[in-house]
């Protein structure tokens, strides 16, 4: 993790092989986008809408949604912000799998069939692809997602070895998009389970050598609705757009609770 920067000067000029121009070959193709709509101001029941669109090689599902919203039907409603997978706004169910619309390239999906887009499951749908995120953030807040260190504040930084830092690196990547929690069949059942995202964020502090409140978080997650409801279905790990090994993190928390009790 430290800095062995390469000191060797690279060549002033190299022969560029006829490299594959990833961005170059932009081909057009047609898709059918099928979106589950819901708007209680219009009608009580959800319905499906379908659009045929012509898209390009590097377009993502988000581009297709934008194309509909901007050119065809302005009432189509979804959250989005950064559009490159780091803000976590546009988690949705695409062809039955939770993903970020901005990280899912159309060309990677089967475009011969309609691309089916729905809101993430398990949270109340507010309108089209927008769900109520409050229950999700409530669980996050409950695990005390902040560093607690009771020792006197040093003047400089708190020392932490690269190995100690590496220990919780994976779980610092979470962007709170809810793709994991809303892919969990246990969470779907009653919404009471803390859910993978909350546990991941607890993990990030439990295994941070600078934090003192690991015990309290373990106690919280030892709850009836805590880690023991995890059934290791790995849906969360598969859904995570950041590639966090979510199930592994949950398992490590389980082990920590066990070891602490023994």
């Amino acid at each position: 993790m430290s800095t062995p920067t390469v000191e060797k000067e690279p060549a002033s000029k190299i022969d560029l092989a006829e490299s594959g121009d990833g961005a170059g070959a932009v081909q057009q193709f047609d898709i059918t986008l099928k979106v589950r709509r819901y708007d209680p101001e219009r009608t009580e029941d959800a319905w499906w809408d379908e659009w045929n669109l012509t898209m390009f090689g590097t377009d993502r599902v988000l581009d297709a949604l934008h194309k509909v919203k901007w050119d065809v039907d302005g009432t189509l409603t979804f959250r989005r912000s950064c559009a490159h997978g780091i803000c976590g706004s546009d988690a949705m169910r695409i062809n039955g799998r939770n993903r970020l619309a901005c990280k899912t390239l159309l060309k990677d999906l089967d475009t011969s069939k309609p691309i089916i887009v729905e809101a993430i499951k398990g949270l109340p749908v507010e309108k089209d692809l927008i769900v109520d995120m409050e229950p999700f953030f409530q669980s996050y807040r409950e695990i005390m997602p902040f560093m607690i260190n009771s020792s006197p504040t040093p003047t400089a930084e708190r020392v932490q070895s690269p190995e100690e830092r590496q220990r919780f690196d994976d779980t610092t990547k979470c962007i709170l998009c809810a793709a994991c929690t809303s892919s969990c069949p246990v969470f779907w059942t009653d919404g009471q389970y803390f859910g993978p995202a909350a546990i991941v964020n607890a993990h990030r502090f439990i295994f941070d050598s600078r934090d003192d409140a690991g015990d309290m978080r373990l106690e919280i997650l030892n709850d009836r609705e805590g880690v023991w409801r995890c059934r290791t279905t790995f849906n969360c790990t598969e859904a995570c757009p950041r590639g966090i090994e979510v199930t592994k993190a949950i398992q490590e928390v389980k082990t920590a609770i066990l070891t602490r009790s023994l």
């Binding site: 260190n149 504040t153 400089a156 708190r158 919780f168």
Partner: peptide
Amino acid sequence: AVLDLEKMGLPFNRTPEGKIDQRR
């Protein structure tokens, strides 16, 4: 500002001595 963040818990990369690592 950096030290504040570190004390708030920001996981900076570290030098082998455990201090905040820096790059160009």
